[in-house]
Design a protein around this nucleic acid. Structure first.
Lengths: 239, 239
DNA sequence: AAGCCCATGGAACACTGTTCCACAACTATG
DNA sequence: CATAGTTGTGGAACAGTGTTCCATGGGCTT
């Protein structure tokens, strides 16, 4: 049931300083978790590594956090919350819905690019707060776009799936590259090399993508994908 | 480096019967892995459970499989290979590219629906054989659609991201439901209930989606999303 | 028949998430 | 001010994981 609790801070009462010079709190734990995730990816975050960084034992963490999933969702939400907030704060008054969707999507992409673990965490946090924040931002604009009500969910869901799909893919790439000890360029180079050696009869298209893969721009492709969907929405309206 | 090996069967020479009445082989191991995955989800597959089912020890498996990732990718490919193959076999001669894309996408969706673990495995197998199979199928049709060459990768990638996004999301839902001990209907009910209790000021849109969420059809929404992208592609061509 | 090598499967290692509990530190009460 | 109670702590222990290692067995070649 705790999975369905949408309010990550709990009752959030003030806590006093304890023996270690500062006390544990969900905020402080999540903050440390984000640092570890940024440094070592999702595989680097364990209750041991987190406890070590906070100079405590694993058991103490469970007083504030109910499970590993809970921790990951909270860390994810720490990033997404500030991303969505910053995006809304900088939104102009009379902005076109399409432009607002582009901005929110790009902001999410950039957040997942800066913190690759967010991509996979978001997928695993289906229905949880961080996803809710994004859906809310997208959905309002879909509504403003004049999409018929019975298509609100389908349309929003399509955008969300695309965004999470890209994020998940990038996260997976990052994870593999990290395990393999490669940086992004080397990883693309390796994939490209593997693709160019595929059977020419069976995989002509993928082979022909080996070269473009090396130089393509993830961010531009992402935005182009968003525009594809937005155009699809627009053309569905004008029929 | 083994990660880049695109040929899952290795040299694949015939193997003779050994002491257990039948010998281990990558095919047989993968077959057992798929059974375990179908029964218990991704969390149910461990080298121990697999070894037990095959009446051997974990060490023996490593002679045929190089790592857990390797195992998951091979299992995933076993499903995707036959899915793509069946789809191509049933494709009519003069079929419209759009229709071919719809069919391949739906076939992939249905495969991920029948084997929910495939959704997450596919994401983690970025650039590997199973993804290559899907990209090849999509890409050919994109080409047939007359999309300009410099947009081939972006367009194919957009479709792929959407498909993997949906699959990943469904897989995550399934995983959570399994952990929580819920079936699909109960899971949707729980999510819907949680959404309807969100702050009305902060999340009006998500709240309004609580009801539709309960009755929506994943498969129809998926297909509608594909059509959105296809329409986007078409309208980009006619400008 | 001897030797060889592929393949096997069990033990061991270093890790994981999670639970448990003795105990410390702060708060409220008599 | 002493005492009792509550909240929080952190280390130990449990059951499990992926992976490596290696003594041993089976079948093939010479």
């Amino acid at each position: 049931m705790s999975r369905w609790n949408m309010h990550p801070q709990g009752s959030g009462k003030a806590v006093n300083i304890k023996r270690r010079g500062y006390s544990l709190s969900k905020e402080r734990i999540v903050e440390a978790a984000v640092e570890i995730l940024d440094e070592g990816g999702a595989d680097g975050l364990t209750f041991r590594s987190l406890a070590t960084r906070l100079a405590t034992g694993p058991g103490a963490l469970y007083w504030h956090i109910h499970s590993g999933d809970d921790l990951l969702v909270a860390a994810c939400d720490a990033i997404i919350a500030r991303t969505v907030e910053a995006c809304e704060a900088s939104a102009a008054e009379g902005m076109e819905p399409q432009e607002a969707i582009r901005r929110l999507s790009l902001a999410t992409f950039d957040a997942m690019d800066a913190h690759p673990w967010v991509g996979s965490a978001l997928t695993r946090a289906a229905g949880q707060l961080p996803v809710v924040r994004i859906v809310e931002g997208l959905g309002r604009q879909i509504k403003a776009l004049g999409v018929p009500e019975e298509e609100h969910w389908m349309t929003t869901s399509a955008l969300l799936s695309f965004i999470l799909g890209v994020g998940g893919r990038n996260a997976a790439n990052g994870r593999i590259a990290r395990v393999e000890g490669l940086d992004r360029a080397e990883f693309l180079e390796a994939t490209s090399a593997a693709w160019s050696q595929l059977d020419a009869e069976l995989y002509p298209f993928v082979r022909s993508m080996a070269a473009p893969l090396r130089t393509h721009d993830d961010r531009m492709d992402f935005l182009a994908g968003i525009d594809l969907i937005l155009q699809g929405i627009a053309s569905a309206r004008n029929r």
